[in-house]
């Protein structure tokens, strides 16, 4: 097997939860599907709109569909081996625990700061030692070098931690894509910790 095949084969055993399927969640899920993650549990309550297409991994002919259903289709067109469980719901504390307790890693991909806080507090107080990878600060354009990654125990933080979305500072494909892929990269680092290639 080639090394990418070995990696894909190894990743089949793992399940990743993705909380939110907007700019962060859709792009992160696709990156993980491409490298061969075994199972994805995706959750979102929203539908695809035309305004989402400047950054989220959906297509024009998917406008009006539930994001979780459109994303499941897109993932399976890329890699049909990925098992996708799609949940059309707005997550609360008990949902996070129920949906994601079987995951090896959880990716926080919400839009709203309140929801980010909810999932961080839930995972840190009720689900330890589950790793949680969050995306914080990615609005605007340029400033590539202030985007970073750090961790505090099992909390992994990706983003620039300062750029909040506003009327003057929209979220656009390049920077949200950078943070989403950085989250996927953190997930890989966690999951591939004990991976040893054979030759």
């Amino acid at each position: 097997m080639t090394l990418p095949e070995q990696i894909s084969n190894y990743l089949k055993q793992f399940t990743v939860g993705i909380a939110g399927c907007g700019g962060l969640g859709s792009n992160c899920a696709v990156a993980l599907a491409r490298v061969g993650i075994g199972r994805l549990i995706i959750a979102d309550f929203d539908i695809v709109t035309e305004q989402n297409l400047n950054r989220q991994y959906y297509f024009h002919d998917q406008i009006g569909r539930l994001k979780v259903h459109a994303l499941r289709d897109n993932i399976q067109r890329i890699n049909p081996d990925v098992v996708v469980k799609a949940f059309d719901m707005k997550l609360c504390v008990s949902d996070v625990i129920e949906l994601f307790s079987g995951c090896n890693v959880i990716v926080e991909a919400f839009d709203k700061a309140e929801m980010k806080q909810m999932i961080i507090e839930t995972v840190l107080t009720k689900m330890q030692p589950k790793p949680l990878v969050v995306g914080v600060g990615m609005a605007g354009w340029g400033k590539s070098t202030i985007i970073g990654a750090r961790n505090s125990g099992n909390l992994f933080i990706c983003g620039d931690e300062v750029s909040e979305v506003s009327d003057e500072l929209p979220v656009l494909a390049p920077r949200v894509g950078m943070v989403a892929n950085m989250q996927a990269n953190e997930v890989l680092e966690i999951l591939l910790k004990d991976f040893r290639p054979s030759n």
Binding site: I120, A139, V171
Partner: peptide
């Protein structure tokens, strides 16, 4: 000590 600002956007 770790302090994380939560910022809307994603």
């Amino acid at each position: 000590v770790m302090v994380l600002h939560l910022i809307t956007g994603g």
